[in-house]
């Protein structure tokens, strides 16, 4: 007997339920873009190698291209279309807009969703590869420019708006002062932690 290769699933996206039949091969990314007209989530590589399709799944940043839609059933998905509070931009969105944290804009939804997830990870005390001492007794790593860069490295920007993206993330984090101090070029390089 042939095995079933499609299912009717219910996805929870930006607070709304969407019930639809999906081919099991359909990724969450293609379900959003081709089935639900939520095209803010971008397809940059479709291989988990660029971050353009970053969404939040149960609050955690995830690449939608490697997430099968059928396996996303039961998870609360937030896409770029769902991060603003009605007409009021999310602080990360506002900072990207004000500080020109993009150029072509194609990686931008992924950068913004990634930044939102990343700030929550940092607030939860998660260390990063830039944190040096990872032991819990060590002081929690402040959100320096170096920390932001390492934590955001899963999001490529070929226009290379990296410097203004980092400034925007820092501003949204309310870390302006600390980060600004950290990114001013020093005599022999950069005064990062």
């Amino acid at each position: 007997m042939a095995l079933p290769t499609s299912s009717v699933i219910t996805l929870h996206i930006n607070g709304e339920k969407h019930t639809l039949p999906v081919d099991h091969r359909t990724t969450l990314l293609d379900a959003l873009r081709e089935r639900l007209d939520l095209t803010g989530t971008k397809k940059g590589c479709d291989q988990g190698q660029c971050g353009a399709c970053t969404v939040l799944a149960d609050g955690r940043r995830t690449v939608a291209c490697l997430q099968l839609a059928v396996a996303a059933e039961g998870r609360e998905i937030t896409t770029i279309e769902g991060v603003a509070d009605g007409g009021r931009l999310h602080p990360v969105q506002q900072a990207f807009l004000d500080l020109d944290g993009y150029q072509c804009g194609y990686c931008t939804p992924g950068q913004i969703c990634s930044a939102i997830g990343m700030l929550a990870e940092h607030a939860a005390g998660w260390p990063s590869a830039a944190s040096g001492d990872v032991r819990p007794a060590a002081a929690a790593a402040p959100l320096t420019a170096e920390e932001i860069r390492e934590r955001m490295s899963g999001n490529l920007c070929r226009c290379s708006a990296y410097t203004s993206i980092v400034e925007a993330v820092a501003r949204a984090a309310g870390a302006d002062a600390a980060t600004a101090a950290a990114v001013v070029p020093a005599q022999s390089g950069e005064a990062v932690a």
Binding site: R33, T39, I80, L89, Q93, G105
Partner: peptide, 21 residues
């Protein structure tokens, strides 16, 4: 000046070629 299409780009509203239904 901030980009005139900036709000569309940060909200995902900007439609690129593969986004137009």
């Amino acid at each position: 000046h901030v980009r005139v299409e900036g709000r569309d780009k940060v909200t995902g509203a900007a439609r690129y070629a593969g986004d137009v239904p």
